[in-house]
């Protein structure tokens, strides 16, 4: 009797089992911890420079990322731990500020791609048949279009229109952030294709299951079947691909910012910081502190995000275990 109870006691839901597998994957778990630490450090920037707090922390931690000074290309010192840039701005605060914007674009952009991708994929999979093949053919065609070019086209051609509209409707501060909103929407709008394919595949196989037929026989509406019964069963896969979408959007954003098409100065992202540092490379003198920190931060963030994503995929995808 007691033995039976013990067996029941260790019975775990699929998600709990996946979480266990994830924790036993050492690289992924360490990357997850590193990622949380990076996010905390990045968030700490604006808190430390608050007037009530800044008296209690070293001055080097409370520099403003936008304050100009006369100290151009200052090497790392006690006051500026990572040195200063061409306008004498403190680089430590600028790297943290840039990382904040990069991560923000990555997360919000992934959110946009999540909404589009899941709705598109779930609809195609649920409708099946002719609608499915039309919707998936559209995805196939979009796959062959170099999406980043269309983001650039969209941003450079249409930003002025949106800025006009926003100037009428919102405050000036909001207009300054127009580029950020464009990046959210533009990058999200081209990153949903893989998500749509995967969700569609899962939904297509789920919709013929018995519990769906049972639910339909009980008179559930299509929306209820889709959102209450099918999508929760796809949630694991969705989470996995969401974590893998974040680094790809961060990468695209820094790519655009590097080319000068993304975040505009005086705002900064990791990509534009690397571009500023790379512009100062010449055979006579290298300001290494302008290049290594943003490069290192970007590389560490992308590596950690990818390791976590891979770890989650291995944890949720039980088929991979047998390999």
């Amino acid at each position: 009797m007691s033995e039976v109870r013990q067996v029941e006691h260790v019975h775990l839901s699929p998600n709990q089992r996946a979480w266990r597998r994830f924790k036993s994957n050492r690289i992924a778990a360490v990357s997850g911890a590193l990622l949380i630490a990076l996010v905390l450090i990045v968030m700490a920037g604006p808190i430390l420079s608050r007037p009530t707090i800044r008296n209690y922390v070293p001055a080097a931690l409370a520099q403003s990322p936008l304050a100009l000074s006369d100290l151009q290309f200052g090497a790392p010192s006690g006051e500026h731990w990572l040195g200063t840039d061409v306008h004498g701005r403190d680089l430590l605060s600028r790297v943290l500020y840039g990382a904040r914007i990069s991560l923000l674009v990555g997360i919000v952009g992934a959110g946009v791609s999540l909404v589009i991708g899941v709705l598109w994929g779930a609809l195609a999979g649920y409708l099946a048949g002719r609608w499915d093949s039309i919707m998936m053919r559209i995805v196939d065609i979009l796959y062959t279009v170099p999406s980043i070019i269309f983001v650039i086209l969209l941003i450079s051609a249409w930003e002025a229109v949106l800025k006009d509209q926003m100037a009428r409707a919102f405050s000036a501060e909001m207009v300054a952030r127009a580029r950020l909103i464009f990046l959210f929407v533009g990058l999200g709008a081209v990153s949903w294709l893989t998500m749509a394919r995967i969700v569609r595949g899962e939904v297509l196989s789920l919709r013929t299951r018995n519990f769906i037929d049972a639910s339909r026989a009980l008179g559930a509406s299509h929306a209820r079947i889709l959102f209450r019964h099918i999508l929760p069963n796809v949630s694991g896969v969705i989470i996995v691909y969401l974590t893998l979408t974040v680094p790809s959007i961060v990468l695209h954003e820094s790519f655009l910012s590097y080319l000068g098409l993304g975040i505009q100065p005086p705002q900064a992202s990791l990509g534009s910081l690397i571009a500023e540092g790379a512009a100062q490379i010449n055979p006579i003198r290298v300001y290494w502190w302008m290049i290594i920190p943003p490069c290192g931060f970007l590389a560490a963030t992308l590596l950690a995000l990818n390791f976590v994503g891979d770890g989650l995929r291995d944890a949720f995808d039980a088929r991979l275990e047998s390999r």
Partner: peptide, 22 residues
């Protein structure tokens, strides 16, 4: 292979230039 995938060209490029060219 994983490092090569995760670290983008815009990081590798300036680093390679600094190391091998300068």
């Amino acid at each position: 292979a994983l490092m090569a995938i995760c670290v983008p060209g815009l990081v590798i490029g300036p680093l390679l230039t600094m190391l091998f060219a300068i």
